[in-house]
Structures are given as C-alpha cells and as structure tokens.
C-alpha cells in the first residue's frame, strides 16, 4: 500500500509541471519550425526594400521542398533571372551574365541580399535551432491581439549570427508573429514581424513580413507572398542543374 502511494506521488510530481506548463519551449520551436516546412511549395512574391534612397521592389518566384531546400528566382527587371539556391548545406547564387555559379561561404554569407535587411546568412539559418540554443519559455503575451508564447533563445555556440533571440509564437497556429534578434549583451540588432497570415491548404502561412536592421537608420524590408501553392509536384529538384537553364 505504502509502495503504491509512493508510486502515485512520484507520478504526480512528474505530471504536475507538465500540466502547469503544458508545452516546453523546445516543443514550441519544433512546432513553429514544422508548420513552416512543407513537402513542397511554389510561390510568387515580392521584396520591398526601403533604405536612405527610397523604396525598391523586386519580384520573385520561389520553390521549396522540405525544411532546407529552396530556390528563388527573381523576375523583376533589375535582377531578372538571378537565382538563389539553398540546399541542405550550401548556398549558391546564379547570375545570368556570369559563367560560373557563386558559392557563398564564410564571410561572403554576411553580405546583404539585394541590398535588403536580410543577409544570405539569415536565409540559411534556422537549422538545428534546438541544439544550438537554450530555449526558455518566458510566458505569454498578446501580439496584435493574438495570444502568443514568448520564448527567449540563447545561443550555446558562437557560430550562429545572433547570440540571443526573442520570439512570439501564436499559441494556436504556431505562427511566429514577431522575433527580435539581439547581441549577447542584449542590444537589438534586427526585428522581424509577421504582418499578415493566410490559411492555405489547411496550413497557416505568413504572407507578409517585415524585417528591419536596427543598426541602420530608417531601413526595412518587406517580404510579400502573393500566391502560394503547397504540396504540389515541382518542376525543380534543387540541384545545381536548376541554376543553369
């Protein structure tokens, strides 16, 4: 009898924290990552870059497969035909007038993409976040009237660009509504906000988001997806061949 009670107590002590915080930070991040990854997707979109000289709009078509593979092809006049291919480990740039592919590596990844507030590094990031960061669920907050989990992520390694991140994730849909990127000492470097989400094929997808580099004055980059289809067969297979037609 006594034995049984102990077993129950142990069981209770295990279950109580779980019932109080029904979900851990890591799980939230995993879920948020999961909803962003589709088997496949095909989309049209635009990037609006605002800097000290004004606003510039570039349009693109993009394909993704799984979590890490993506291909972006620009369709706007100024950069028509330029492509960015991300494979699991590499990032390649294709320029119609260049006779070789440019493999981005090392410090080259730190350059900004199309003069925007997004660096190539930002595009490749997000892998193994769970293993690279200590994730703490700070609590809950409303963002634009939506209930969100607030998490802070502190880097365990020095090889990630942002030593600290703070993210606001929708409690229901696990959409990331807002993210802030900090230095180790807590200085705000970049800010990301999701401006609009849509439900497509039963999935919540961020259709418009704003990224701004806080180290520059008065700049922001808005990414808009105008048309997205998910889980459809694709004409591309995310190999280098896709970059040379």
């Amino acid at each position: 009898m006594k034995y049984k009670i102990i077993v129950i107590l142990i069981f209770l002590s295990l279950i109580i924290p779980i019932t109080v915080f029904s979900i851990t930070g890591e799980e939230i991040i995993r879920k948020a990552d999961a909803i962003q990854a589709f088997d496949t997707s095909e989309a049209y979109g635009e990037i609006r870059v605002k800097d000290r000289f004004g606003v510039k709009v570039s349009t693109f078509k993009s394909w993704t497969r799984g979590k890490y593979e993506s291909l972006l092809e620009f369709t706007s006049l100024a950069e028509r035909g330029q492509k960015i291919l991300r494979t699991e480990d590499e990032l390649y740039l294709f320029y119609p007038d260049a006779e070789e592919l440019i493999r981005m590596q090392g410090s080259m990844l730190r350059q900004s993409m199309l003069g925007s507030d997004i660096s190539y590094e930002d595009m490749t990031g997000g892998k193994d976040r769970v293993s690279q960061y200590d994730i703490v669920l700070e609590g809950e907050e409303k963002v634009n009237g939506i209930d969100c989990y607030v998490l802070t992520m502190t880097a365990r390694v020095r090889t990630v660009p942002y030593p600290k991140e703070k993210v606001w994730i929708d409690k229901e849909t696990f959409i990331v509504w807002k993210a802030e990127y900090y230095t180790k000492s807590g200085r705000l470097l970049k800010e990301m906000e999701t401006l609009r989400v849509e439900e497509i094929g039963g999935r919540m997808i961020a259709m418009e988001s704003r990224i701004s580099d806080k180290m520059k004055t008065d700049t922001e980059t808005i990414m808009v997806i105008n048309n997205i289809k998910i889980n459809i067969p694709l004409s591309v297979d995310f190999s280098l061949d896709d970059l040379s037609w």
Binding site: S107, A155, R158, P161, Y162, T183, K184, M215
Partner: peptide
C-alpha cells in the same frame, strides 16, 4: 557604435 562579428561569426555591437 561598432557592429562586428565575434570569433565564430556571431553579431556583436
């Protein structure tokens, strides 16, 4: 303010 990358590649300001 100086923004740079630390040893390993992380941002520092």
């Amino acid at each position: 303010t100086i923004v740079t990358r630390g040893n390993g590649g992380f941002y520092e300001a």
